[in-house]
């Protein structure tokens, strides 16, 4: 474990927890794409199939449990919570799952490190994580609503991406045989898409500021 990896995990964890806490506190999920949150829940569920079979460390197991618990809690809040679910704008969150999920299944079946069930599911989760932000991007472009997408959430998610890439570079130079093309390429694609997300976030933020100026 290097410092980039630990910091990356912590910012990733914080981004999910900040979102969950915010929804819990303000009892609203306006501006949040349920589809993106559901895709993230699927990402964790398919990636951590090894949680009970391969023990890596106590840290690893606990983090997996927290990611699974928090991502499914966010989905539960948006779908089931009697107050929160009213603030979810279903008509705006229209991105079709099939356009994201099917290509990821297809790609995971043909491009993977090993053709076993667990390995294909793990690869699928990497591809899915790379593009899971797309429904959120579409929603953001459509509504320009950044009320609930706080600066913290965007900052933490971006920091997680950047730190993971630094972690890979560090591991490449310090560990023998550390070459993993699939997570690297998927991770770079994800980071580039995130850059787009950040662009719209910044743009919306700027526009909102302008609207709030006194006449």
């Amino acid at each position: 474990m290097n410092i980039f990896r630990l910091a990356g995990d912590m910012t990733h964890l914080a981004s999910v927890l900040v979102l969950l806490l915010k929804i819990h506190t303000i009892k609203s999920c306006a501006g949040i794409s349920l589809k993106t949150q559901e895709l993230y829940a699927i990402v964790f569920a398919t990636r951590y199939l090894d949680i009970f079979t391969d023990f890596i460390s106590l840290y690893n197991t606990i983090m997996k449990l927290i990611f699974l618990g928090s991502s499914f809690s966010i989905v539960w809040y948006i779908r089931q919570h009697k107050i929160v679910r009213r603030s979810y704008d279903k008509d705006q969150d229209t991105f079709r799952y099939v356009f994201i999920v099917l290509p990821c299944i297809f790609l995971a079946l043909i491009i993977n490190e090993k053709f076993t069930f667990k390995e294909v599911m793990w690869t699928f989760s990497l591809y899915l994580e790379a593009v899971a932000i797309l429904p959120q991007l579409v929603l953001l472009q459509r509504t320009r609503n950044i009320d609930n997408l706080t600066g913290q959430y965007v900052f933490l998610l971006g920091a997680y991406r950047a730190l993971y890439i630094l972690n890979w570079i560090y591991r490449y130079f310090t560990e023998p045989h550390y070459i993993h093309w699939i997570p690297w390429i998927a991770g770079i694609v994800q980071t580039l898409l995130y850059g787009d997300f950040f662009y719209y976030y910044f743009h919306s933020w700027k526009n909102n500021k302008k609207l709030q100026l006194p006449a």
Partner: peptide, 10 residues
Amino acid sequence: ELEPEGHDEL
């Protein structure tokens, strides 16, 4: 030195 089995990243 070979890599351990399984994925150690989250």
